[in-house]
Amino acid sequence: MPILEVTNITKQFGGLTANSNVSMTVEEDSITAVIGPNGAGKTTFFNMITGVYQPTSGEIKLNNESIVGLKPDMVAKKGISRTFQNIRLFDEMSVIENVLVGMHSHLKANLLSILLDFPVTKKEEIEAEKEAYRLLEYFGLSSLLNEKACNLSYGAQRKLEIARALATKPKLILLDEPAAGMNPKETKELTEIIRQMGKEFHTSVLLIEHDMKLVMGISEHIIVLDHGEKIAEGNPDEIRSNQKVIEAYLGSAAVN
């Protein structure tokens, strides 16, 4: 059963059609990739799923429930979390605080319980801190917990963004070019993390990535966008041998 079902979505910015009649599904507990050259409309596609942009037309369903028209915070509460192509961390906050913000929707504290320092709120807070720390451990960032996010290296910032997204306990996580700016060693480590993460945190993964080794290595299903249109989809082998894809994007060197 698909967790995400996108049907014929189109997005126009004035005269420019960034996405045109794109349909796709993400199966539960799978890793699906969206690839395509720069400007193909991949980020726009993510922005529509997460409620940042409203589609001009089309339908998006999460677990068979429409999420079109919801604000991004509501989409997050429904169970879709994301990272950003241009990293968007809370720079001046510490590493662990960044993760704690991700837990926002799962904390029951309210104004009254905070001001009166209810024991449940205190306990919940301590539990959240421990959980955040475990997440940091999983990503190898635990020794940096009190460091400001902006002081991390590029690769560490990318990992922290994923950790923060996972803290929302998503059913589906969208990763926008998670390996961009990473060196080969970091990319390899990240590939492993993404591969494991789905099982570990029980979440489906939808990712945009230019690193073909990463994409081909971990995706079960790949969608190819070009000029806002879906030109192909299938498993890595099918994509590798698809003539349209090779012409539009991969180039013969990258296929091998």
Partner: peptide
């Protein structure tokens, strides 16, 4: 934390369910 998150990055804060 949500206030600071909004101060630091509105779009990310909203994406975290705030």
């Amino acid at each position: 934390r949500s206030w600071k998150a909004i101060r630091e990055n509105e779009i990310a804060a909203q994406a975290m369910g705030i």
